[in-house]
Amino acid sequence: MPVPEPGPGEVLLKVGGAGACHSDLHLLEVPAGARSFTLPFTLGHENAGWVETMGPGATGFEPGDPVIVYGPWGCGLCMNCRQGIENYCQTPGKPSPGGLGGTDGGMAEYLLVPSTRYLIPLGSLDPREAAPLTDAGLTSYHAVKRSVHLLGPGSTAVVIGAGGLGQMAIQVLKALSSATTVVAIDTSADKLKIANTMGADEELVSGDDAVKQIKDMTHGQGAEVVLDFVGINPTLTMAAQVSRMLGHLTIVGLGNAALPVNFNSPAKECSVASPFWGSIPELIDVIALAQAGKIKMLVEHFPLDSAAEAYRLLHDGKIAGRAVITPND
């Protein structure tokens, strides 16, 4: 691909790391007639690197500065965007993230970023390690943050799916509410071991026994917060079964299943939400937590030539945390 030339207000980024996400797999599998993008198209919406060139009128950064890129690019003018909530831009057709929508992403040597407002300084963090924080970290943080007020002493939070996002959610839960008991659920024994190292208090194999154990440890009440990072029928069913009255059930995973909601399930007045990504101020929080050593993404590096192999491993469930493509080693 040709190296982009930054226009007015734009920034050219030398890519250090571009995370490989399950959302990319969905794009790869979209039938030709249903694509919202044209080929050739560059994937990569979890991006971090170093400022290469500032376009005319762009200020606030210098070449060589390590930065991470906020992903959901909105219009910048609506009420939500003006509050930094560009993930919920009110303009039709927005947000349009690079690597997910109509513009090329970061799995290339260089990435064109439309505005400096999407760049967050990384300080001492390595862009190759930090790249997934812009989605896996931010999405998990946003999902947890909405429920923090429920997580006082004696509370329980259940994380269903201990992959990249689930691992981050466990760390965020411990960072924002050390008093809560965090329960990790997965079908993989290896991922449950990783969940333990990330701070989970209990690790359970997915299934009916896990539901019973959660009910037992919560005295039959269920968990205040249930986060489903898978989103398939069995996990949503389990999430509803372990929900608590006046609790929160948050669907983060893109498994494309549906959660039946009626008078008896989930628990009475349990709030069900399906959030998307997070805000610019929240990404600043995520970077601050990472700089303080409170959260850290488990990453596996792949050179650009091995990107297809990284996606194959991701598809087969063989990536322990997050695969990161490194175009500029």
Rank of each mutant, 00 (worst) to 15 (best):
S178A: 15
S178C: 08
S178P: 15
T181M: 11
V182G: 08
V182K: 06
V183Q: 12
A184Y: 03
I185C: 13
I185Q: 08
I185E: 08
I185L: 15
D186L: 06
D186F: 06
S188G: 15
S188K: 15
S188C: 15
A189F: 00
D190Y: 11
D190P: 00
K191A: 02
K191T: 03
L192G: 03
L192N: 03
L192K: 03
L192M: 09
L192S: 05
K193M: 12
K193S: 14
K193A: 15
I194W: 12
I194C: 07
I194F: 11
I194T: 14
I194M: 12
A195L: 09
A195T: 07
A195G: 09
A195F: 08
A195Y: 07
T197I: 11
T197A: 13
T197L: 14
M198K: 13
A200N: 07
D201S: 15
D201A: 14
E202P: 00
E202V: 14
E203W: 03
L204T: 02
L204M: 00
L204P: 02
V205I: 06
S206W: 00
S206C: 03
S206H: 10
D208C: 03
D208E: 15
D209I: 05
D209H: 09
D209V: 05
A210S: 09
V211C: 03
K212Q: 13
Q213M: 00
Q213E: 08
I214W: 01
K215F: 02
K215T: 03
K215S: 08
K215L: 11
D216M: 01
D216C: 00
D216P: 04
D216E: 12
M217I: 00
M217Y: 01
M217E: 00
T218V: 04
H219C: 04
H219G: 02
H219F: 06
H219S: 09
G220M: 07
G220C: 03
G220A: 01
G220K: 05
G220N: 06
Q221P: 00
Q221T: 05
Q221F: 08
